[in-house]
């Protein structure tokens, strides 16, 4: 339990000292996977709150079409995909980070979004159309902050230079897309083979 609290406390150290924070996370084992999992849960919950709880004026999508399970699946899938793609790439590109470090780094980097979600959603009940700019601004700040943390974290745990970190991040996104395509293709293939086997069995059952 204390381990978990220590891991969560480390987030705030990362906020104030990003470069040192990620380095300490790696070298002195300050972070842990448990806290990262809690952050993943928090991210899903706060994103749900944001989509469901936002004031009508600021809602962009149709609430009727919202599904919690779909959102949770999408978030978990993207996180796993990022970790796999980043790990596969950095292994080839002399990265020093392990898989669990990549996972922790990603989750810690996404904390600004969690932090902004709740107050921003609450503020929409106070804002009217003229203040919509603030809404966009806060939203943008949280995303920029998260991307910056991702960049620094990627640099620290893999012991990369700045440019190499940017390059790996971009390639990671490309690899994620590639993996999605491959998975869809493989799924298609499996389905086809399954149907083929099924028809063979059917054919045989008619003959015998």
């Amino acid at each position: 339990m204390s381990e978990l609290v220590a891991g969560l406390k480390h987030i705030f150290y990362i906020f104030s000292h990003p470069i040192d924070g990620f380095w300490v996370m790696k070298s002195e084992k300050k972070g842990n996977v448990k806290s990262a999992l809690v952050i993943l849960l928090l991210l899903t919950v706060t994103m749900t709150y944001r989509i469901v709880g936002t004031e009508f004026y600021f809602q962009s999508e149709q609430l009727a079409k919202f599904s919690f399970l779909l959102l949770a699946a999408a978030i978990v899938l993207l996180v796993v995909l990022f970790c796999i793609a980043n790990w596969a790439l950095t292994t080839l590109m002399d990265g020093k980070g392990s898989f669990s470090e990549i996972f922790m780094m990603l989750m810690y980097s996404l904390c600004p979004i969690i932090l902004v979600n709740i107050p921003l959603t609450a503020l929409t009940y106070f804002f009217v159309a003229e203040e919509a700019t603030f809404y966009t601004l806060f939203n943008a700040v949280s995303i920029v902050w998260a991307v910056f943390l991702l960049f620094v974290g990627n640099m620290s745990i893999h012991e990369y230079s700045g440019i190499k970190s940017i390059a790996t991040l971009i390639l990671t996104v490309v690899a994620m897309a590639g993996i999605i395509v491959l998975v869809i293709l493989a799924g298609n293939l499996v389905q086809t083979v399954w149907l083929w086997l099924g028809s063979i069995v059917k054919e045989l059952s008619y003959r015998i």
Partner: peptide
């Protein structure tokens, strides 16, 4: 206004209420 998705007017009403 919420029922007919008139967002700008909806926001105006909220502003008055605020």
């Amino acid at each position: 206004f919420k029922l007919c998705n008139a967002k700008d007017m909806y926001s105006d009403a909220r502003q008055e209420l605020r």
